[in-house]
């Protein structure tokens, strides 16, 4: 009772990355609160799906498996979750901020008359003192999110209502396997006992899905490499940094032409234009063809052996040094500072 629930979304027959990221976050919150981490997965032909959830440390996995639930539908998914939450009384419920989670989350929150915070970038446990009421709330979920077009960062709490609900975008939280051999208790939900025909009022008549494409434009953090990175092999360091920071890898045309990366990642005049919160230019000299595609980034860090390279004029921070030395150190430095 009063545990943490993560809604596990199915994407092309597998548990979505964002759900595994939330399981990882949920596990650490559960440890801090000394409660259990529970998962709910809804879909069709879910046999064996627990092997994609258990390694992230879920204590219990609730499975609703029914052929009518192969694709997401608002009403039956809401009905199943609301029914489960009424019985289980979770204190926290997390959803991916996907087209599914952002459709489902508000519906569930409204049915349970509880608060929901969208697109959180950080989730932290903390206390709250309501001075007016003279009341102290312990161990609330701080739901931290940008608002107002990114001009402010707000910390939202739900002092009185449960569950405290939040959605989080893919790539914001880290995904980490706790124990490959972890076993979770699996509980099957009797779907027919919960949903009714009314829940199937909306029908899907056609679906056209495309395979996942690289789209670095949506990323808030871009680690970009130029010719100065030196090799396809060295680019692996950039992928590692991007992964740790929850970002994507970009590149200059010179790096693409040299065959270090795919064209889909090219930033600049003949590539894509990006405006992330943070752009880390690794071994990029800063030709105008490149800077035209990234100069509106909120913050720019340049790593370059040449302290007079053109990029240093638009960067906020200039690190003079070799990419292969600096990048691993940045990863280490970030790990020290991130929670």
């Amino acid at each position: 009772m009063n545990n943490i629930f993560v809604f596990c979304e199915i994407d092309e027959g597998k548990i979505a990355d964002v759900s595994q990221e939330l399981l990882t976050k949920g596990r650490s919150l559960a440890n801090e609160l000394k409660c259990n981490l529970e998962a709910i997965v809804i879909g069709s032909k879910l046999e064996g799906i627990e092997s994609e959830i258990a390694p992230y440390g879920a204590d219990t996995i609730f499975v609703a498996d029914d052929k009518r639930l192969e694709f997401y539908l608002t009403l039956p998914f809401t009905t199943i979750i609301v029914d489960l939450f009424k019985k289980q009384q979770p204190q926290i419920a997390l959803f991916g901020a996907t087209s599914v989670g952002r459709d489902l989350g508000p519906r569930v929150s409204s049915a349970l008359k509880s608060g929901l915070t969208a697109d959180c970038t950080s989730l932290v446990i903390g206390n709250h003192e309501d001075k007016k009421e003279g009341k102290v709330y312990e161990n609330l979920l701080y739901q931290i999110r940008p608002a107002f077009g990114g001009n402010i960062i707000a910390t939202i709490i739900n002092p009185d209502c449960r569950p405290q609900m939040a959605t989080v975008r893919e790539g914001v939280m880290k995904k980490e396997i706790i124990n490959k051999n972890h076993k979770s208790k699996v509980v099957a939900i009797d779907v027919n006992k919960v949903v009714t025909d009314v829940d199937f009022a909306v029908e899907i008549i056609e679906r056209h899905m495309e395979p996942r494409k690289i789209d670095i434009k949506k990323s808030q953090v871009i680690v970009s490499g130029g010719y100065g990175v030196g090799s396809r092999e060295n680019f692996k360091l950039l992928y590692e940094l991007a992964h740790v920071l929850g970002g994507e890898v970009g590149a200059s045309r010179a790096a693409v032409d040299a065959g270090y990366v795919d064209h889909a990642r090219q930033v600049g005049q003949t590539g894509v234009t990006v405006r992330p919160k943070l752009y880390i230019a690794c071994g990029i000299s800063g030709q105008v063809q490149h800077t035209a595609g990234m100069e509106e980034s909120a913050m720019i860090i340049s790593i370059n052996t040449d302290p007079t390279a053109p990029i240093t004029k638009i960067a906020d921070y200039n690190i003079t040094g070799d990419v292969s030395e600096v990048v691993p150190r940045l990863i280490e430095a970030y790990r020290k500072h991130s929670k």
């Binding site: 402010i152 960062i153 739900n158």
Partner: peptide, 15 residues
Amino acid sequence: SPTKVKAIENVVFAA
């Protein structure tokens, strides 16, 4: 309103 705003911070891009 179940949700309350506990704190607001302005985003400052220094440097």
